[in-house]
């Protein structure tokens, strides 16, 4: 893994806050995604990882935050805004419609049309090619309903849905949680491949092996605050695990947050 050179971030969020009623979930979060790099977002359950992802994708709106995309200040006020910018998300709950088939799910909200009617042929072909690129085994038809798929197959469809588009930033919220060894391998390879193609990739994972294998930098969230942002090459698993569980590790961590410079 080449030591990543820091280009300007493709996506930069500063001072992000988010509350659900009285629950303050995100506290002054700074988060940046760099093109050509994989950023791992780690943290305990309930740390606020999924909330941060959903705010970035426009599902929720930040209570306050400066968001810059490719150097320009932007406001993302809905999923369509994020998609227009080129931000794709694989949600933790996958967000698939069980009653629709694979093709219909992959193009949901962005169907291809000829005139007023749906262009099923071209969508089907594209969906099939994308899935084939991900080496999905044992899916018999892209026209079978998502309800009939296994957990791993569903997760792959959700990933394929995000890969389908010409995107600049891809966020994957625990994308390997339901996957077997071989499929996890595929996803990690895909994550690396996307970064090598110049995309900014964010992966949320609890698996330190995966994180250290694929990520260039690691951002640890602790109770809604950024505990630290470290380079993978300059940190150890023990350090990161400590950051996740207690919010600090030696010099790093919340108590001395002002000294954390990268």
């Amino acid at each position: 893994m080449s030591p990543a050179k820091d280009d300007a971030p493709i996506l930069a969020i500063r001072g992000a806050n988010k509350s659900f009623g009285a629950i303050h979930v995100l506290h002054d979060v700074d988060f940046a995604v760099y093109p050509g790099q994989v950023t791992a977002l780690v943290g305990d359950n309930g740390a606020g990882k999924s909330t941060l992802v959903k705010c970035i994708s426009g599902v929720y709106s930040f209570d306050g935050a400066d968001v810059e995309f490719a150097g320009n200040p932007v406001t993302i006020s809905g999923p369509r805004d994020a998609a227009h910018l080129g931000i794709e998300v694989v949600y933790q709950d996958l967000a698939l419609c069980d009653n629709l088939d694979i093709v219909q799910n992959m193009f949901l909200g962005r169907e291809r049309r000829t005139g007023a009617t749906l262009d099923e042929s071209s969508m089907e072909k594209l969906a099939r090619n994308t899935l084939a690129d991900l080496s999905v085994r044992t899916v018999k038809s892209v026209r079978q309903s998502v309800a009939s798929l296994s957990g791993g197959q569903r997760q792959t469809v959700a990933i394929a849905k995000a890969v389908l588009w010409d995107s600049k930033v891809v966020l994957l919220d625990e994308p390997t949680a339901a996957l077997g060894v071989a499929q996890t391998r595929n996803v990690l390879d895909l994550v690396r491949k996307m970064a090598d193609q110049g995309l900014g990739v964010v992966i949320i994972s609890h698996n330190m092996n995966d994180v250290f294998e694929v990520a260039d930098r690691i951002v640890a969230l602790y109770l809604g605050r950024v505990a630290a942002e470290v380079r993978t090459t300059e940190s150890t698993r023990a350090q990161v695990v400590e950051l996740i569980t207690s919010g600090r590790s030696g010099d790093l961590g919340l108590a001395r947050a002002d000294q954390v410079q990268i």
């Binding site: 999923p79 998609a83 698939l96 949901l108 909200g109 962005r110 169907e111 007023a116």
Partner: peptide, 24 residues
């Protein structure tokens, strides 16, 4: 069956949250 609108009707009925996140 043949328009985006119809597709979105089924999507909302199948999983409202997924439909919303798809920008519908």
């Amino acid at each position: 069956e043949r328009t985006s609108w119809g597709r979105h009707v089924y999507a909302v009925g199948g999983n409202v949250e997924a439909a919303r996140r798809a920008g519908i």
